[in-house]
């Protein structure tokens, strides 16, 4: 574990009037650093927050953006919400699966990409829309879906 995590935890605990509120911000921050939240990390976070590991694990597992398995360098979320579906998101997902040779929910063996479904991303005006490391991209024409993968994105 990195020593700065302790510093972050203290910072965040101070930022919120109730220290417990610092849990999710801390998880976000550490995930950005580590890419995902291993059980060791959750254990460490529990320790830093003065909470039980059970508690932290239970919270983390509730939220789809806390990754409890390793993810690729680029996490591609394809919105499958109704508006995006009407605009062809099925096809976008299909093309990406073909291109990457993986199914939705999986990570390429080289660790470059993780392909995930997203529920309505509140960007239906850009339908069909996707996020690469949570940066919006859209509208994505199915024929240009592959371009999504080479998109330069800032680290989230």
């Amino acid at each position: 574990m990195k020593p700065e995590y302790q510093v972050w935890a203290e910072e965040l605990k101070k930022e919120f009037p109730n220290a417990n509120s610092a849990l999710m911000p801390l998880l976000h921050r550490i995930q950005t650093e580590e890419g995902w939240l291993s059980s060791e990390v959750l254990d460490e976070v529990a320790h830093l927050m003065g909470l039980s590991t059970q508690y932290v694990e239970s919270v983390a597992s509730f939220y789809s953006l806390f990754y409890q398995r390793p993810v690729g360098k680029k996490v591609v979320h394809v919105c499958v919400g109704l508006s995006c579906m009407l605009a062809g998101s099925d096809e976008v997902m299909h093309r990406l699966e073909q291109k990457l040779g993986i199914s939705e929910g999986e990570t390429t063996p080289d660790g470059a990409f993780t392909l995930l479904e997203a529920e309505c991303l509140a960007a239906c005006d850009l339908a069909p829309v996707a996020q690469v490391n949570l940066r919006f991209q859209g509208p994505i024409h199915p024929d240009e879906a592959e371009a999504l993968l080479s998109e330069e994105v800032s680290k989230q």
């Binding site: 919400g81 109704l82 508006s83 529920e119 309505c120 509140a122 960007a123 239906c124 005006d125």
Partner: peptide, 10 residues
């Protein structure tokens, strides 16, 4: 905001 079809708050 996550109600499908709604994107005003964003």
């Amino acid at each position: 905001e996550a109600e499908p079809g709604t994107f005003k708050d964003r």
